[in-house]
Design a protein around this nucleic acid. Sequence first.
RNA 1: GCGCCUGUAGCUCAGCUGGAUAGAGCGGCAGACUACGAAUCUGUAGGCCAGGGGUUCGAAUCCCUUCAGGCGCGCCA
Length: 570
Amino acid sequence: MLLQHGFIDKEKKGSVNEHTMERHLRTILQDACAALSADVQGDAIEIQVPKEEFGDLSTPLAMGLAKPLRKAPRAIAEQIVQTVRANDVFEKVDIAGPGFINFTFAKPFLVAEMLRLLREQDAFLREDVGQGRKIQIEFVSANPTGPLHLGHGRGAALGAALANLLAEAGFIVEKEFYINDAGRQVRLLGLSVYARYQDLLGRPVPFPEDGYRGDYITDLAEAVRASHGDSYAGKAFDDVAEFFIDFAYLRMLDALKQDLADFGVVFDTWQSERDLYRENLVEQGIDDLKRRGHIFEHEGAVWFRSTDFGDDKDRVLVKQDGDYTYFTPDIAYHRKKFEKGFDEVIDIWGADHHGYIPRMSAAIQALGHPKESFRVLLVQMVSLLKAGQPVQMSKRAGEFITLREIMDEIGPDTTKFLFLTRRSDSQLEIDIEVAKAQSSENPVFYVQYAHARINSIFEKAREAGAPAGEAPSVPDGIDASLYNDDEYRLIRKLLLYPMMFRGAANTREPHRVTFYLQELAAMFHQYYHKYRIITDDAAVTTVRLLLCQAVRIVLRHGLKILGVQAPEKM
RNA sequence: GCGCCUGUAGCUCAGCUGGAUAGAGCGGCAGACUACGAAUCUGUAGGCCAGGGGUUCGAAUCCCUUCAGGCGCGCCA
């Protein structure tokens, strides 16, 4: 159940990528440091991608060692270079600036790595950072009281992409949606529908002050009338509350699931708040905290001493009137998450809830879990512009742009891609006119076009009777001189994918994938314009088709993480 | 008042666990289809990284401060 992504090739899952450019370099540098009697762990060595003219990879290692070794950075660099130069994976190793060491890999090595990419495909691209650790991502979790809006869409895109990313990175991932079906909000929903229903039957009642006012409320009231006629006419709300609440929220939940499905986002588990009560978990949560000594009573209320764990103030769990606060079932919920055995729990929240983080974190720590095992990713607001003018959104008046509308306007792929080209915690503006009008120059099409174009090349190759059909079979070796400098640029970019991938997984930042894909697509389009893939020279053609195939594999992998189609044709 | 997020090219944003001459897309300007898809490509202009101070070999990145925008600070949810 946990592995329903269909994306993970379970047979290849176990293989670990041992020989990317970066790992190679790391190992070599670690040995070099040992020779200098500097105890540096391979993983701790900083490796970066420099500007192209400097080389493929570089390290400021020597500058960092200057102080502990009490030597000049360049002198240290010299020593490192001496030991490293003998290695034949490098074409060039040199020192630049204040002490950077730049590495340029030898072409035969690059070619061999690319062939490995072609053979191993996804297994070559991913890095096992999770090592089977269990991680839960809870996201969207919208109240089932209205349609999903853009903020939810952003959370959905992020959560789904992150789940794909982490699953590929060797975590066991569960995607969960928390259903707020027990609180005041669903009651208000039921009451709103009730009021509209009575209106329809000519028995107007005052509309609730904070009620939901969207047209969908009236639609729900109509649906009640259609299925139950006037059997609830004139009855007091308290007598029919359960019916109206359940009728309304279950329909909203269905609609919400449909929206998410159409957006391409699927959840593994749906946790109901009511079930937490049914299973007595809310009470157990309080008891657990009590046992651990973090509960006190004050002025007739039950408090959690969250200040012991970094919160600003202590928090009430049971009010004077005996009701729970919103926080209390949430503690039970997070307690349950950990009882299910997750090593890490990620919540994706709207940024307006950021003030809630310290108390939730405190509760989790109080329950005995390490602080680092809980992580909240904040998704900032999405504001919508139409031709440069802000579109006013008021949830109260039921006036807001829904995810559904945006999906219908600009398509799920574009919507997801736009959401994922920004860090989640930066505010995002989408101008719907721009997104529509420029659809032909939209970044998502740019990347997809590269993929479709490669597919088209293979079609052409088949027609032309080139030595390749779908894609040439992968040879054991290729003469490194068959590739030109522009092709080596592309190959290097491909080989940097695993490094980018690991960074994205470690930081939980899928947007890095988006940026990488745009860069790769750009590089490919440029290459395509400069050279013909299918030529009279059979050897060159084969070798170029192999490169195209490698680009295609990487594009597909990246797009799949983002949850965006990799179309054969456009 | 306190806390969190943000401030980088005309616009939208990357880069932020300190590294080399700060990047991309869009928009602007000038160009490229008799060859695998022009949803593409080439060239060009555009910056006191909000301001100020500090830390050090080195700061867009870390610290302090000012300013501007957003969001929070309930025995609400």
